[in-house]
């Protein structure tokens, strides 16, 4: 018995010692599958700052986490466009001190001064994500170009969707020819019928790593983020990436500092580190979204313009969100 106690105490001391070498911490909440682990651990080594890294799978989950935790629990977060606007309204964000960043000039100005935060008072853009349809051409020979095409009965149990109500309801609305931010009750009802038909073809909803479903051939079609599609294509070259003709979601994710943050200085150090060219390169290599860094990326300015032109941003729809909530619960 004594030996066991000594052993346990030993483990205690061992684990206790390994944690105390950092001079500071920064509490980060970010999208899952967004920044490679080694980028974070290199920061910890370089700056001697411990990063407490948590993840979320939707903007709504982020909002819930921030507003239910005590002020000062989190420092750095990565909300998308409409969530910046909403968090600004709810006074959950700290004004951004751009002068603390040395590498701000690396950002392509076309991504700055967006309508949700027109002077970048509260946010600086990090990455641009878009939704895409990925199709495994090994087994699907049809030409898929729109959301309507996904309703084909042939694809039963063969689709993976992002698990995010705004995006999927938005896709249904676009498939029906409505605006992605439509709040008209009749249009939402049509979207419900659309999604119920689509659900027969859906094998799973997954936001965190939908590419796995395509790579393991669990499904042949995915309505998933662009980087996920590209990563799936890297594993299987016969995967085709499609920007649906009825439109798709643009999601600009930003750096933002949470109100009451206790480790602001460290958060700015981390942001400045993430803005570095070499770091952006590493992030994009592992998660191929569209970087806001002007020195990085495989897409030309014109190609980015085309993507921006045909996509649409999700907007804050205020209290109508409860209609979306309910619709989503009905679908599931």
């Amino acid at each position: 018995m004594k030996k066991i106690i000594i052993l346990i105490l030993g483990i205690f001391l061992f684990t206790g010692c390994t944690n105390n070498q950092y001079k500071g911490v920064v509490n980060v909440l970010n999208w899952s599958s967004y920044i490679p682990d080694d980028v974070i651990s290199d920061f910890e080594k370089e700056y001697n700052i411990k990063v407490h890294y948590g993840t979320y799978s939707s903007n709504e989950e982020l909002l819930a986490k921030i507003s239910s935790s005590k002020e000062g629990t989190y420092d750095l977060i990565f909300p998308s466009d409409y969530m910046i606007e909403l968090m600004k309204q709810r006074e959950l964000l700290e004004p951004f001190q751009k002068e603390k960043l040395n590498n701000l000039n690396n950002i392509n100005i076309r991504f700055l001064k967006q309508p949700y935060d027109s002077n970048n008072e509260y946010s600086v853009p990090f990455l641009l994500a878009t939704t895409t349809i990925a199709v495994n051409k090994d087994s699907i020979k049809d030409n898929i170009t729109s959301y309507q095409d996904l309703l084909n009965e042939k694809y039963q149990n063969n689709i993976v969707l992002i698990d995010d109500q705004r995006i999927i309801i938005g896709a249904a609305l676009q498939g029906l020819g409505y605006d992605i931010n439509d709040t008209n009750k009749e249009h939402l009802e049509e979207a419900y019928n659309f999604l119920m038909k689509l659900k027969k073809n859906v094998k799973a909803f997954d936001s965190d790593s939908p590419k796995t479903f395509l790579i393991t051939k669990e499904v042949d079609i995915g309505l998933i983020w662009n980087a996920e599609s590209i990563l799936a294509k890297e594993e299987n070259d016969n995967i085709e990436i499609i920007y649906p003709e009825d439109g798709y979601v643009l999601s600009m994710d930003n750096y933002a500092i949470v109100k009451g943050s206790k480790n602001k200085e460290n958060a700015y150090l981390l942001i400045d580190y993430l803005l570095r060219d070499d770091i952006c390169e590493r992030i994009i290599k592992e998660y191929p979204y569209i970087s806001t860094n002007k020195h990085v990326g495989n897409l030309s300015d014109e190609e980015v313009s085309v993507i921006l032109k045909n996509g649409s941003y999700i907007k804050n729809i205020g209290e109508h969100i409860s209609d979306y909530d309910k619709l989503w619960a009905r679908i599931k």
């Binding site: 411990k50 993840t55 965190d208 790593s209």
Partner: peptide, 19 residues
């Protein structure tokens, strides 16, 4: 749980989701 307080089950949960 809060920031920096990942337990093994929580870590595994997020790993099952992301790979």
């Amino acid at each position: 749980a809060g920031p920096g307080s990942n337990t093994l089950p929580l870590k595994i949960y997020s790993m099952i989701k992301t790979g």
